[in-house]
Amino acid sequence: MVNTFLAHDLLWGMTPEQLPVDAPAWVSESISAGQPVVVRRALSAPDHIAVGVRGRLREQRFATVMSIDVISRRVKPEDLCHVSIDRDVPAVHALNQLRPMLDDCGWVWGVSGSAGFELASGFQALHARSDLDLILRAPQPLDRLKAQALVRILDTAACQVDMQLQTPFGAIALREWAGPARRVLLKNAREACLVIDPWEQAA
């Protein structure tokens, strides 16, 4: 399998035997239950991918690596746009509300975070105070006025909505790009740095 995985992709196939010996017990329990791991922004060997394991508690997050040749399934955030679940929580209501508006925008978008995890795996991750995390594939520049208009759409939702813009060189927060700051924080596998144009390769 070619190492073309992107942050927020969900992967299946890891087993407890592949975990480091110092991994907490809850990590093994999560993997044994059949939960996927989420791709992280971090460097790894060519035949491995940096991933994170989720636990039941918010603070339970464990960073590790996964061998690419054991991956049995991959779900990308954009695969989850039209997956529905019957949960009476604000994040689900917000997703249902925003879905047609985001579809009409014509952009490739996806669901990440707790909502994406639950939509993809069926394991309950959302609660009444959960935010909705979204990603927007942005291979071409999105001007700041359009970013501001998109923030206004997101702010009509039933809960806090955070969206990341995925540029060819990393990810930025939509709300930051829509704000007044000249420089924004660009995150990729190598670093997090302040840039003026997140669609321009750093020198």
Score class of each variant (00 low, 15 high):
Ile68Val: 05
Ser84Trp: 11
Val161Gly: 04
Asn96Lys: 09
Val75Glu: 05
Leu95Gly: 05
Cys159Gly: 03
Glu118Gln: 12
Asp103Val: 07
Ile68Tyr: 00
Leu165Ser: 07
Gln166Cys: 10
Ala173Gln: 15
Arg129Trp: 05
Ser130Tyr: 04
Gly55Ser: 00
Leu57Ile: 01
Asp104Met: 11
Pro141Gln: 10
Val108Phe: 14
Glu118Ser: 04
Arg54Ile: 03
Asp143Val: 02
Pro141Arg: 14
Leu119Glu: 00
Gly110Lys: 09
Asp79Leu: 09
Gln160Arg: 14
Ala157Leu: 04
Met66Ser: 10
Val75Pro: 07
Met163Trp: 06
Arg129Ile: 02
Asp86Met: 06
Ser67Cys: 10
Leu154Ile: 02
Met101Cys: 14
Lys146Trp: 13
Val70Gly: 01
Trp109Thr: 00
Ser67Arg: 13
Arg129Ser: 13
Pro168Phe: 08
Arg58Ile: 03
Gln124Tyr: 11
Ala149Val: 01
Ala91Pro: 02
Leu98Pro: 01
Val75Asn: 01
Arg61Pro: 02
Arg137Ser: 12
Ile85Phe: 02
Gln164Val: 09
Leu154Gln: 13
Arg54Ser: 01
Val161Ile: 08
Phe169Tyr: 15
Thr167Gly: 07
Ala171Gly: 12
Trp177Cys: 00
Arg144Thr: 03
Pro100Cys: 13
Ala178Ser: 06
Gly116Met: 03
Ala157Glu: 00
Val108Ile: 10
Val70Asn: 04
Gln124Glu: 11
Pro180Arg: 14
Gly122Thr: 00
Leu150Val: 03
Val151Gln: 13
Leu80Pro: 01
Gln148Leu: 10
Pro100Gly: 10
Asp103Lys: 06
Val65Cys: 12
Asp104Cys: 08
Leu145Met: 14
Ile49Phe: 05
Lys76Cys: 13
Ile49His: 09
Cys105Gly: 13
Leu98Met: 10
Arg175Trp: 13
Leu57Lys: 11
Ile85Trp: 00
Pro139Tyr: 10
Val111Trp: 12
Arg87Glu: 13
Val151Gly: 11
Ala94Ile: 06
Ala149Met: 02
Gln124Trp: 14
Arg182Phe: 09
Asp104Ala: 15
Arg61Phe: 02
Leu80Arg: 10
Asp104Tyr: 07
His93Ala: 10
Trp107Lys: 05
Gln97Thr: 12
His82Leu: 02
Ala173Thr: 08
Ile71Cys: 05
Pro168Thr: 08
Met101Arg: 15
His93Trp: 15
Gly170His: 11
Phe169Ala: 13
Ala91His: 04
His82Phe: 06
His93Cys: 04
Arg61Trp: 11
Ile71Trp: 01
Ile68Glu: 10
Arg175Tyr: 00
Val83Ile: 06
Leu174Pro: 05
Asp79Gln: 13
Met101His: 14
Arg183Ala: 09
Arg152His: 12
Leu145Gln: 15
Arg54Cys: 00
Ala173Cys: 12
Arg182Thr: 10
Ala125Gly: 01
Asp86Arg: 04
Arg137His: 15
Ala147Lys: 06
Ala171Gln: 12
Ile153Asp: 14
Gln148Cys: 05
Asp155Asn: 12
Arg58Trp: 07
Gly179Ser: 14
Ser114Thr: 03
Leu150Ala: 08
Met101Pro: 00
Leu57Trp: 12
Gln124Asn: 14
Gln164Arg: 04
Ala138Phe: 12
Ser112Glu: 05
Val184Asn: 07
Phe62Thr: 03
Ala158Leu: 11
